[in-house]
Amino acid sequence: MPHGDITHIEIPVTDFATSGSFYSALFGWQIAEAPGFEGYPMWQAPNKISGGALTKRDDDFTQPRSYVEVDSIDDALAAAKANGGTVVAEKRQITETSWWAIVADPDGNELGLYEGMTAAPES
């Protein structure tokens, strides 16, 4: 995905089965756990482009969070801080080829950052 595209949306829920049934019936989303991501059921929209995950709701995560594709999380974190934002979660590795972090804008709205590839590089 190009820089700046929303690449993933996490939805905090209290019950994976109930919420999964709700979203599948409402939007036709396919929801399943992927190997290596147990306890993090991922959804994909019928267009096979949009997607995200259902994640456990807690006191610090009560609203859906969009993740935006960036060329460099390090650069994006520096730019967020330089422009009045804050870092909520520092850069963390997802796979060998992907990372995430969370920033908040000056109004406190949280956005996730995503850098990397979702598939293994071609040989």
Rank of each mutant, 00 (worst) to 15 (best):
P2E: 15
G4D: 07
D5I: 04
I9V: 14
I9D: 00
P12R: 09
V13Y: 07
V13I: 13
T18R: 15
S19I: 08
G20D: 03
S21K: 05
S21R: 11
F22R: 07
S24D: 08
A25Y: 04
L26H: 03
G39V: 11
G39W: 04
M42T: 11
M42P: 01
A45P: 08
I49S: 02
S50Q: 13
S50P: 03
G52Q: 04
A53H: 07
T55W: 12
T55M: 12
R57E: 15
D59L: 01
D59K: 07
F61T: 12
Q63N: 09
P64I: 00
S66T: 06
S66A: 15
Y67R: 00
E69S: 10
E69P: 01
D71P: 07
S72L: 11
D75L: 06
A80P: 12
A80C: 08
K81F: 02
G84W: 03
G84F: 05
G85K: 01
G85W: 02
T86M: 04
T86G: 06
V88I: 14
E96Y: 03
T97C: 00
I102H: 05
I102M: 13
A104Y: 01
E110H: 03
L111N: 06
L111I: 07
G112H: 01
G112M: 01
L113Y: 05
M117H: 10
A119T: 09
A119L: 06
A119R: 11
A119D: 04
E122P: 06
